[in-house]
Amino acid sequence: MTNERRVLVHPDKAALAGSVAARFITKIIDVLEEQGSAHVALTGGTMGGAVLRAIGDSPAHQSVDWSKITFWFSDERYLPHGDAERNDSQAKAALLDALELAPGQVKSLPAPGEHADIEAAADAYAAELAAAAPEGAEYPRFDVLFLGVGPDGHIASLFPDRAGVHVTDRTVIAETNSPKPPPERLSFTLPVINSADRIWMVLAGADKAGALGLALADASISDVPAAGAQGRKRTVFFVDQDAAAEVPAELITSEQFWTAAHSIDEH
């Protein structure tokens, strides 16, 4: 099993979303043929939603047996269910609702009022992960885990200069002092993120260039949490030209543009 980081650069946000969508559809079909089922972790943010919309817009998405996929969320704003700012609300509007999935296929993180407090909510989602895990494991095998990267280098709700990025003895943590509103959030820890076979980070815009450059330069995870993300098989940064401004040329994959007919081996 090999692990390597790749940077795939696209001319603009629309091309970026379409390329990631095409790659995901083809890869998840392969995974389902091989395994019979799959676990996918979704993220929020502008590009996270754009990718999901592009998946739904692609006629090829009809070739996927969506009933075999369980969707999780790597982090969530601790807001009431249905709030437009929640990652799961955005994902449902962008794609999931249109797929007519069974309720158990979408594993939303808890909302206020469901548990005694946010710490108990984190424990409850950790229990859901454990219930779906193979025997002896604490979480399922994630075939694809999507992440956004903030201008400050944060991933999920693991922020710079916060203790959460260093937690290794829990699978889900409560962040109660997020530098971005809202202050209360729930998040996978880095060991869970890095258990994924494939981590796909999707980022666009000149404001992400510095964070991307530092992540690829293996900056401290205390300063740039994205630097600590590394999938078991592949770690791919899907970026637009603006976000790639500070990426050394030797780190950019020569096969820049990917379609279903132009595959990069991932096995």
Rank of each mutant, 00 (worst) to 15 (best):
R5A: 10
R6P: 00
L8S: 08
L8R: 11
D12C: 04
A21Q: 04
A21H: 06
I29S: 09
Q35C: 14
G36Y: 04
H39S: 13
V40A: 03
A41S: 15
L42C: 03
M47V: 14
M47I: 10
V64K: 01
W66K: 12
S67G: 14
I69N: 07
T70C: 12
F71R: 03
F73Q: 02
P80S: 06
P80F: 04
E85D: 15
S89T: 15
A93N: 12
A93S: 13
L95Y: 09
L99V: 04
L101F: 05
G104W: 05
H115D: 08
E119V: 10
L129M: 14
A133K: 06
A137F: 09
R141T: 15
F142T: 00
F142H: 02
D143C: 05
D143I: 06
L147H: 14
A156G: 08
S157M: 05
L158R: 03
A163E: 15
T168M: 05
V172C: 09
I173G: 08
I173L: 15
E175L: 14
T176Q: 13
K180W: 11
P191C: 00
A196P: 03
I199M: 10
V202G: 01
A204Q: 06
G205C: 05
S220E: 12
P225H: 00
P225M: 02
K233F: 13
V236D: 15
F237A: 04
Q241I: 02
L251C: 01
I252Y: 01
E255L: 06
E255V: 06
Q256E: 14
T259M: 00
H262K: 13
D265S: 14
